[in-house]
């Protein structure tokens, strides 16, 4: 699971008002090389919740991202490289995503998060 996906997931348990961002419990993180594409990064940048993204990157061991950023950063190749690496190349392979309100764990196994709810959570 890429950090991009983490940035798009929230806890949908009944009664939870703010299920984002899910806290990451790290079991195993792997790096997979992905072709660099600046257009994709520029398209995705405005859709990313930056603070959640920076925190997620730190949790999986990558602390190179700036805490605060605006779209002028997209002019910088150095920034784009870091953004690319954190967004697409760092995978949570094993671990869990934890609902910030209820503490419910959504397991991540073989890189795939299980967001299915139990009957009493829907």
């Amino acid at each position: 699971m890429r950090l991009l996906t983490h940035n798009m997931l929230s806890s949908n348990i009944k009664g939870v008002s703010n299920g984002f961002p899910l806290r990451i419990e790290v079991g195993k993180v792997v790096e997979k090389q992905v072709d660099f594409n600046a257009d994709f990064l520029r398209n995705m940048f405005p859709k990313i919740e930056w603070k959640a993204f920076v925190d997620a990157a730190k949790t999986v061991g990558y602390a190179e991202l700036p805490e605060e950023v605006d779209s002028s950063a997209l002019e910088s190749e150095e920034f784009l490289n870091k953004f690319h690496h954190a967004l697409l190349e760092l995978h949570l392979e094993e671990g869990a995503l934890v609902c910030p309100e209820t503490g419910r764990r959504f397991p991540v196994s073989k890189g795939i998060p299980n967001m299915l709810l139990h009957e009493d959570e829907v």
């Binding site: 890429r2 798009m8 949908n12 992905v34 890189g111 795939i112 967001m115």
Partner: peptide
């Protein structure tokens, strides 16, 4: 989702996979 992951890998392409009901968990941010 596990079988899909194997099929993707066998063809050298990538998709992010989520085991969920339709788009549960993605509907807010996506």
């Amino acid at each position: 989702v596990r079988v899909t992951s194997e099929t993707l890998e066998a063809h050298g392409v990538h998709a992010e996979l989520v085991n969920t009901d339709i788009a549960l968990g993605l509907e807010k941010r996506l």
